[in-house]
Design a binder for these strands. Structure first.
Lengths: 205, 205
DNA sequence: GGCTGTAAGCGTACGTTGTAAACCTACGTG
DNA sequence: CACGTAGGTTTACAACGTACGCTTACAGCC
């Protein structure tokens, strides 16, 4: 019988995401999100316990965009896993500033569960089970989240590389040389290359 | 001719680390660190531009503890890399709460440079060069930082696993089963297992 | 259609944070 | 001993998350 709710969790998450995309993580403030919704700051608290829950909503909204429909089953299972991993990277890349929120809230995310379930299915199809399968899933997730983080927090490829290339080459000969090679490797190639290493380790005899 | 400085960057970082170890990241406050040094909050700013620089000092102090002396050269190069990676994990594990600061400040850390140089040397010894070597270094760092993060932010192994095991097994059959296997895998085995995958990918034909 | 109870939404306020500015003060050098 | 520099303190402010209490709009009943 009371007044009906005017917001959905999804609408709130969208508003918060709009703020973050526009003003970065530093601009993400309860007041700013409320303003984006044309509300007072305190009205937000009718929908959310605290800032942390709002962050969870955001992460869930971003990761919820992952397409977990199984890739073409005619592809080798390793390639299908590659696709699933790339899909997760893609949705986060659409909102780079949330990259650092993901690891914090991942373990409460339903989207991550669905994604993990899909990956586990493919790992199983690849003949993995038991503890080896646990290690594989966890390894993929670690690499994925680590790579996303590094990518959006001061990339090796990119402007940082320039500084690296000017390192005193007597004390850091390898780094100086590597920085030169790094210029040839774009972010996608870098990510896919690392992922391929992991997956090759999975299938090697 | 003026009054001498009474603090070293290292002493400041130690105080901050003491605060973090005692009260967690949330307790890490300019005022708290200053109090730890028996100073007023503003006195800190004679030594540090802002909070961010203090965070950098902390990360540098933690990562500075890495032992980068080359492991026994009689070991295969893959094992020597394993040792270097584990050493990085070890120093962060000693101060779990700083885990989330590391990725943010890594690219300005001299300690990371030294570590990277050592790893690159071993990769080179393993016959890697050019873009393959770039991808390898970056892959190792991504996995390492991702794994550290996951480990200290809601582990798969650990209490989280219990919740996972009780998932509706009709919708998450693999996850439910995997959660049971996960109980057998300790954090060290999990980390080392994932790392081994990556390195095997590096040496596979 | 008016009345009413519930929950939506708002205004105000408090404690805490990072840090700017102005001030006082201890010390090495002349 | 005086002086100037830089160390340290005090005070202050804007912005943050959020507790509390009030007002107000609506769905269901008479």
């Amino acid at each position: 019988m009371p007044r009906p709710r005017s917001l959905t969790p999804d609408r709130i998450a969208s508003a918060a995401l709009a703020v973050i995309d526009r003003d970065g993580l530093a601009g993400f403030t309860m007041r700013a999100v409320a303003a984006e919704l044309s509300m007072s700051a305190m009205a937000l608290y009718r929908y959310v316990d605290d800032r942390e829950e709002l962050e969870r909503l955001i992460v869930e909204r971003v990761l919820g965009g992952i397409d977990v429909t199984p890739p073409d089953p005619r592809l080798p299972w390793v390639e299908r896993i590659t696709i699933l991993v790339q899909r997760m990277r893609t949705v986060v890349a659409a909102h780079p500033a949330v990259a650092s929120l993901v690891p914090v809230h991942r373990h409460r995310s339903h989207a991550v569960l669905r994604w993990s379930e899909a990956v586990l299915g493919l790992l199983t199809e690849g003949g993995l089970a038991g503890e080896r399968r646990v290690v594989a899933l966890r390894g993929l997730l670690s690499y994925l989240l680590g790579a996303i983080q590094l990518e959006h927090l001061g990339p090796l490829t990119g402007p940082g590389t320039a500084a690296l290339a000017e390192l005193p080459s007597d004390r850091f000969p390898y780094l100086a040389e590597t920085a030169r090679s790094a210029r040839q490797v774009g972010p996608d190639a870098e990510f896919d290359g690392g992922l391929a290493l992991l997956l090759r380790g999975l299938t090697a005899p």
